[in-house]
Design a protein around this nucleic acid. Sequence first.
DNA 1: GGCCCATGTTCAT
DNA 2: TGAACCTGGGCCT
Length: 269
Amino acid sequence: MPEGHTIHRLAADHRDRFGGRPVRASSPQGKFADGAALVDGQVLDGAEAHGKHLFLDFGATGWIHVHLGLFGKYAHGPGTAPPAGDTVRLRMTGPGGWADLRGPTACELITDAEKSAIHDRLGPDPLRADDDGERAWARISRSRTTVAALLMDQKIVAGVGNVYRAEVLFRHGVDPYRTGRELRRAEWDAVWDDLVALMREGVRANRIDTVRPEHTPEAMGRPPRVDDHGGEVYVYRRAGQPCLVCGTEVRTADLGNRNLFWCPRCQSR
DNA sequence: GGCCCATGTTCAT
DNA sequence: TGAACCTGGGCCT
């Protein structure tokens, strides 16, 4: 489920649900038992996200660093937690409710220095207020790598995943196989600004919607489509379906072991 | 029950 | 470039 918007949303959810008060922490599955024990009873001072990394601030005790990876999921709610089962890596509870973490790639207690090292290897994040696209452009504009690959590289831009990659390139008519150095400055600026807007909306709605009102199936006089991943999108996982804008079949290809989706007509050189 | 797939990353070769 | 890791849903038998 996770691209950057999910993680920023989780940070806000943690602040709202647990912030400023002691939490109970445990690891029903056992793999984070030591870390959970250290944090148990401590006050959650804050939560922040950088790209797809979540950091829970426990002051002098350190930070819990969570990365959901491809399979990780959070479930949370008010009141009493449901039965944990044997896959909950981390359970936090407090007066505001509960949160269960399953299947993460990373769930570890880290120091300030270790946290800094993570920030240092991440590029600017469209969802972090102080970040901008300059550092990303400096690398993109020199690169012979495809724009599609560059957008997924967390050292270049933090937080973009397979859905936002496909969708933002579609929205700007950029052929995913163009190289970074073939991208014009104005195109990158527009892509970055759009990522900021799309991902902010993603945090708000807690899903990825990218289709402009004038391109919805209804507005285009086409039959309605159903997305199986919760948002309304142009090309992501729509291989073989007609492009919402031009009707050409959406294409897919393997790029670096991930599925790429694009419209060969709307996104031509 | 088994198999495939998925909005991800790291490490070994 | 490929394998490994982590979980769950959908679809097949």
